[in-house]
């Protein structure tokens, strides 16, 4: 790009930044007070969880989270529509393979822990799902072309699991008279845990599949010079 033009853009953007900073400063100075914090914390005991962020994500604003799962799904479907995945990397050497052998189970275990702890401390479905996805990334980097994922048919069910369980629970609650995504009193805790478990699996599989970067192939990739490694799946 032309130097003068980029300088001009730079000046304009800098002016915008100054304006935004001024507006932001004067707004903070007004201090509008509590915003939603006091209300969100006050009603925390009714929400079924004791971590306020999880309460917002899975209860007060559960609808946003359902749609966010749909966004993740849309991204993966878009990636799959672009064609088959590229061949994987070379199989790992012995040192890396040995490390992968214990890092991957550890990541899955930690994911499970984060999912559980999300109810009362920082953690939750997305953090847990991100770890599962990372386990898949590590497997692919170590030479497993499919990132340890099951067949395409299974993957299709797993990636819709999160949004599926979420929206079905929501609709069932609407049908039984509580209202869409309004948990009955006292039932919130296990419903949230159920949704979060399904979401964790879906997020983990979706992230790993997105890293693979193409439609899963049933048979051996035709252009691949490398055979995928035989057994890391057995080790999961």
């Amino acid at each position: 790009m032309n130097r003068d033009l980029s300088l001009l853009i730079g000046i304009l953007v800098a002016l915008l930044a100054v304006l935004l900073l001024g507006v932001f400063h004067s707004t903070l100075a007004l201090d509008p007070g509590q915003r939603l914090a006091s209300l969100a914390l006050e009603r925390l005991p009714e929400s079924g969880v004791s971590n306020p962020v999880t309460a917002v994500l899975l209860n007060y604003r559960a609808y946003d989270t359902l749609l966010e799962l749909a966004v993740l799904l849309a991204a993966l479907l878009g990636i799959w529509s672009l064609g088959p995945a590229r061949p994987g990397f070379q199989p790992a050497g012995p040192a890396l393979a040995a490390m992968v052998d214990w890092v991957v189970p550890l990541a899955i275990l930690t994911g499970g822990y984060l999912l559980w702890v999300g109810g009362h401390a920082p953690g939750g479905a997305f953090q847990a799902g991100a770890l599962l996805g990372a386990a898949g990334v590590i497997l692919r980097l170590a030479g497993n072309a499919g990132a340890g994922l099951p067949s395409e048919a299974w993957q299709r069910w797993l990636i819709v699991l999160g949004a599926g369980v979420f929206s079905l629970i929501g609709l069932l609650l609407a049908l039984t008279g509580y209202g869409f995504l309004s948990y009955p009193p006292g039932q919130a805790k296990w419903l949230i845990l159920l949704i979060e478990t399904a979401a964790t699996i879906a997020i983990g599989v979706t992230l790993a599949a997105a890293y693979v970067g193409g439609r899963p192939q049933m048979a051996q990739p035709p252009r691949s010079p490398l055979a995928p490694m035989a057994d890391p799946e057995a080790k999961r």
Partner: peptide, 26 residues
Amino acid sequence: PPDPVPHALVLTGIVVAVSATALALA
């Protein structure tokens, strides 16, 4: 204790940003 609502919005925003980045890279 901080306001949990913006924290949750940011978590949602991060997942959306990751999805968009993944699709753009693909």
